[in-house]
Amino acid sequence: MTKARIDARFAALKAENRAAFVAYVMAGDPDYDRGLEILKGLPAAGADLIEVGFPFSDPMAEGPPIQRAAQRALASGMTLNKTLAMIAEFRKGDQTTPIILMGYANPLVNRGFAAFAQDAAAAGADGLIVVDIPPEEADPLADALDAEGLSLLLLSTPTSDDARLKVIARRTSGFAYYVSVAGVTGVKEADAATVAPHVARVRAAGGLPVCVGFGIKTPERAEAVARVADGVVVGSALVEEIAASLAMNETVTTRVLSKVESLAKAVRLARVASPTV
């Protein structure tokens, strides 16, 4: 049961009284080998959970950084199969860090939900976020994932009212993902004070740990959000490090993992530092 891996991680974090740092990377960005190297280095750099994006040609909710990451991954020949192969490779050396796949519906529809769920579970994935599957369309996918013990994480957003949060919670397990800004990834910045009451609403609706993502770029912002949420997700800022290191001919892995370290450290310090928000 792979849901167990997410639950165990949040139980451990609760015992430590700290928020999770969740790192998002696009599988195969900039290519399979370096993508795998980054993935393998994330836990030691401080990632408590990992979101692995699988690329899609038309990512309608992504800002330019993740759009470009998807284009780099596709150009390097990344596929859903190779994404799962990468996760299986990662699992050989790490049986405890939860991995959440994140992407768009069509590659999954193309594969078939049941076949995908079986392969993802076999590879060692723990959950799935699909940006363009809202609760209204989620049942077939949720049923397929349930059958394999995988979590579906439906997104909650600033526009979700309490009634919708309950519907979202009904088919969400593992943790709740709160999208902190109305917009695409990596553009607007999340404000901890604005986010806090929404985190409370989401937690009340489902009782799951709440991770916040979509607008967090800096250690300062990550620290502030980590005081009010159970986890902080950073994606665009990490893939921008990949873009920058490619442009400057630097070692991609070193640069990305160093950014992860600074963000993870900020998240770890959040609750021992002054609790003011």
């Binding site: 809202p134 009212d161 999208v179």
Partner: peptide
């Protein structure tokens, strides 16, 4: 009522847009 023509149609949009 769900916007389906047989298997086709539906509302595959991000949650942010769904209330709208």
């Amino acid at each position: 009522a769900n916007g389906r023509f047989g298997d086709y149609g539906g509302r595959y949009v991000p949650e942010t847009l769904m209330p709208l």
